[in-house]
């Protein structure tokens, strides 16, 4: 049984660590907040998250399902479909009489789900493989790096088009495929080169001398130091995932009920595109949403880049 002093000591160490982490986060946030484009991106992401959260609430309270359901609804109150924006339908209705705003909001949640799932899969794989192949080197390293070389050269969209043609992917499977491609591909290479610079730091030597196991060194000392960079690449993966999903749904080959890409596909196959500004509500909201959310994650990534990579920070001396 431990005596009280040792427990107090442990608690003190924990508290000190926590303080250090909070201080690190604070200084990181100050750096991040100094970049206007990063804040802009964060603002856009938060407003889309608000849309995603608001949709089920609105469906449960104000909007009734027969009129406003994103897939099966029909706006009986409108004589002609597609109807232009009105007070009942803020962004109008699509050629099949469904409310565009409701479609837009319900798709937001699935875009977040897709992006975050793909990014988590990518980063989990890439961080562990990057750390492991940097730590062991040799055959393990060569194997994973050659695999990454091959995956980098694959034309992703073409591969996804063929995969959807053969197997008919749904949202989760698509996220998984994108995550695997990203995790074993380019992201691993970047994280591995970062892990190589961590591996030669004195504290890794110290941990080894103190008798830390290989598992302990990799997952307690190397991986936490990779996490800032992993976070950065998560942002870029989200952008890529949302973009790929939108392209595939636009071609109409994904097994998904509703998404921004499908909204543009509906307008395009209905022949409303060359109507130009006359039917703007069919194409502009969905297209702008894809672009905005993709660039928001990308901008946050760029701002994080300046936090993670001190060499990019603005020089004050010249």
């Amino acid at each position: 049984m431990r005596d009280q002093g040792a427990i107090n000591g442990l608690v003190k160490i924990r508290v000190a660590r926590l303080r250090l982490a909070v201080r690190g986060l604070k200084s990181g946030w100050t750096l991040f907040a100094s970049s206007k484009i990063g804040l802009l991106g964060l603002g856009i992401i938060l407003s889309f998250a608000l849309l995603a959260v608001a949709h089920p609430i609105l469906m449960a309270t104000v909007w009734d399902a027969t009129t406003y359901d994103p897939v099966t609804g029909y706006a009986f109150d409108q004589v002609e479909q597609p109807a232009p924006p009105s007070w009942r339908h803020l962004l109008g209705t699509d050629p099949l009489g469904r409310d565009v705003l409701s479609q837009l909001m319900s798709s937001t949640a699935s875009e977040f789900f897709l992006g975050i799932t793909a990014a988590l899969v990518t980063v989990t794989i890439a961080t562990s493989i990057g750390a492991i192949s940097a730590y062991y080197g040799g055959v393990v390293d060569a194997l994973f790096m050659r695999l990454a070389d091959i995956i980098i050269m694959l034309p992703t969209i073409s591969l996804l088009i063929v995969l959807t043609a053969l197997f008919g992917l749904n949202l989760f499977q698509l996220a998984l495929v994108l995550g695997l491609l990203g995790g074993f591909g380019g992201t691993t290479v970047v994280l591995k080169s970062q892990a190589l610079t961590i591996k030669v730091k004195p504290y890794i030597e110290a941990a080894r001398v103190a008798g830390g196991s290989q598992f302990h060194i990799i997952f307690v000392h190397i991986v936490p130091n990779l996490l800032p960079l992993s976070l950065l690449y998560m942002m870029f993966t989200v952008t890529a995932a949302i973009f790929s999903e939108a392209v595939l749904s636009f071609f109409g080959i994904l097994n998904i009920r509703m998404s921004w890409g499908i909204m543009i596909n509906t307008a395009s196959t209905g022949g409303y595109l060359l109507g130009g500004t006359k039917f703007w509500w069919l194409i502009v909201p969905a297209g702008a949403s894809i672009t905005l959310l993709c660039s928001a994650f990308y901008l946050v990534g760029r701002a994080l880049d300046e936090v993670v990579n001190p060499r990019l920070r603005r020089q004050w001396d010249s």
């Binding site: 484009i37 952008t239 973009f243 939108a246 392209v247 636009f250 921004w260 543009i264 395009s268 595109l273 060359l274 130009g276 194409i283 969905a286 297209g287 894809i290 672009t291 993709c294 660039s295 990308y298 901008l299 760029r302």
Partner: peptide, 21 residues
């Protein structure tokens, strides 16, 4: 930077359709 990031992440089919239009 902003227009570059927008063009880099713009939804390509939509952008293409806009160019055609």
């Amino acid at each position: 930077t902003i227009s570059g990031a927008l063009l880099f992440t713009v939804f390509t089919p939509w952008f293409g359709l806009m160019m055609i239009w």
